[in-house]
Amino acid sequence: MLDAYMHRLHVDEAWRTLTAQREKFDYFLADTHFRESWQLAVDVLGADAGWLMQRIALLTVRPEGILGRKARDCVQALAELDFEPVYAYRFRYDRLMIRELWRYQWNVASLDRLAVGERIHYRSDALCLVLLDTGLPLRIPASSRLSRHKGSASPADRGPEHLRSRLGAPNRILVVVHCPDEPMDVVRELGVIFDPEALRGVYTRLAERVAAGLRADPEPVISELYAEFPARDLSVDAALRTVLAALADTARGGGGPGAAAARAGEAVRSAQHGRPLDWQRWCGELRDAGLDPDSWAPTLVASQLVEHDVPGARCLLGRTGRALWQAGQGRMLDRPAVRAAG
């Protein structure tokens, strides 16, 4: 069933202005976050909605990026790539937001990955940047171009030129930054982060700032975040040394805590050789050894050593769509010709 706004995207395949993937549109037809956000975008921006969504990208500096003091380096790297902030907003992840943002990708995530990821997401506020792509001509959407520069969540699948590599993202849980892949994902993600009243204001301000050529300075927000949340080291190797040293000290003491510490240390060493760390069991062993599993160093260790994905599982929506845009499967819009998208 299509409401009027979805029907307009369906006619003549106008959805191709927001995604090059028919499968994604089919999923998003029934996605509440996308539907609400797109209705607001059309109501506020009118015929410019699709045009603007192709020219903006979102980047979130996640809590580990705030704690690791990566936000300023990130803004500088974005400027070098011709992405300029037009809106900066701090927000706090909660349990439902985490699951909704990655609904179509985290169907493959192990429960251990979810549990450890939550502990990272709750450490601080995050910084959301709405970015204007100033690199012209625009051949693919801004979000697709930024997704290419972002790089894979897996360190083995990205190069030193990628943003996540430049920012020192150590593994698939500690990825430092997040970016949606296509304009349709941008619309949906804004609908997840903001309630409808706030989002109406965001769309209004974006239109005004883009039209007037205004840019946002994220530095005041970054300074606030750094003042509120103490810096943390993102080195997994350093965390491993800290945890193993603490466990070894406790193990030498013997007794119940010492035996638990020995088991916890052996679980880490086994995981380093390829057997994933069992998060729940390891938490119990750490507690029995007198260590807090929710403290920073054990969380970093677990982010590296737990099983990340359910073996053999596939993401509901695993492709970025960038290759399809480059092959002309999406429809880029000139400003005077946006009526088909709205």
Rank of each mutant, 00 (worst) to 15 (best):
A169T: 00
D217K: 03
G50E: 03
G254C: 10
R103L: 13
D73Y: 00
W282G: 00
L40I: 15
G46T: 06
A142D: 07
L127H: 01
D294W: 15
W282P: 02
S154H: 10
Y226Q: 08
K70F: 06
L214M: 10
R200I: 06
A30G: 02
R164A: 06
V306W: 05
S270E: 15
G253F: 13
W325E: 04
D288A: 15
N171E: 07
L114H: 07
Y203W: 13
A313Y: 00
A246Y: 03
P160Q: 01
A271Y: 07
G312P: 09
E13G: 13
G135I: 02
A246D: 14
W102T: 04
G256V: 14
A246I: 10
T250Q: 13
A340G: 11
G213N: 04
F34T: 01
T250N: 06
W296H: 11
T134K: 15
S165C: 05
A259E: 14
P85N: 04
E197Q: 12
C315P: 00
Y93L: 10
R241Y: 00
R263D: 10
E118H: 14
S147E: 08
Q76M: 11
D185C: 11
L206T: 05
F34M: 07
A153L: 02
T299R: 13
V130Y: 01
A88Y: 02
A198N: 10
A4L: 11
S270M: 12
E219S: 11
A169G: 06
V338C: 12
R252M: 12
A77L: 14
G290H: 14
E80D: 13
F25T: 01
A207H: 11
T250S: 09
D288Y: 05
W38F: 13
F83P: 12
D237F: 04
V243L: 15
A259F: 09
L114G: 13
V243R: 04
L240E: 10
Y122I: 07
A49G: 10
A231P: 02
L240R: 05
G255C: 11
V116S: 02
G253C: 06
R8T: 09
L136P: 01
L52M: 14
S152Q: 00
F34A: 07
D288G: 13
H10K: 11
E307V: 01
V202T: 09
E189W: 06
L214R: 13
D26C: 00
P155N: 11
E307A: 15
V61K: 04
S235H: 10
L52G: 00
R252T: 08
A156V: 14
L146P: 03
